[in-house]
Amino acid sequence: MVDAAVAYYRIGSLWVRASMAYPASFWMMAVGSFLMTGLDFVGIWILFGNVDDLGGFSLTEIGFLYGATGLGIAFADLFVGRVERLGQMIRFGRLDTMMTKPVPLLVQVCADEFALRRFARVFQATIVFTWAATYVDWTLPRALVAVEMVVSGSLIFFSLFISLACIQFWTADSSEAANAFTYGGNTVTQFPLTVFPSEIVKALTFVVPIAFVNWYPALFILGREDPFGLPSALQLASPVAAAVMLAVSALVWRTGVRHYRSTGS
């Protein structure tokens, strides 16, 4: 595990140095990514010019949800977002080269072309989260749950990125389908789940546990009853969901790698 982290750090810093060779391009893309991801929140803010609350939640509460899920996907995207390119690596035969090297394959795939500019997304989510957090009535347990929420949220998105990218071991050109779950999961959790039908909320709890990224811990932190009457134990269950998701993604990754046969070129 430590070896893998060291290897990741080494490959990552290599790419950071490479990208810094073109500083103007780096900063333009970082600023662009910051603005682009921030646009979602501008959209929500404009909606609030037309309504007082959305699904029974105020703008600051939604800002809290938005910031929390934003941090989760931003960290996951920063560290493993590159796994989306798996199909391309397979087509170009680069995955074969990686397999011959004495560094774990997943580390090589995720650290490949590590882009520090993705930090812009972390920065953007941090701003909204910090602003919204000033409206929260903080206590020690709530603060601990907040930390746990961001860590679990990142791990859940992390697992989603990896397990969905594995589809590309079978069909190399359908990487966009994964977006429906990763970025789609991010979009769903930007809003209070009371907006959606209860069947969808149950699916997001028990089938693909994206609701644990922010919804359940945020109910605890904001001191709210579960609007769907689900057990309050769920509000502290995010680490369990994250652990299950991690286990699933490890299994899927292993199956994918075992199934993989080179393009043969």
């Binding site: 429906a180 789609g184 979009t187």
Partner: peptide, 16 residues
């Protein structure tokens, strides 16, 4: 494949 995947993604975002 890419077209089908895109249609799926568009539909999910539309529903949300």
């Amino acid at each position: 494949g890419a077209t089908l995947a895109g249609i799926f993604t568009n539909s999910v975002f539309g529903a949300i």
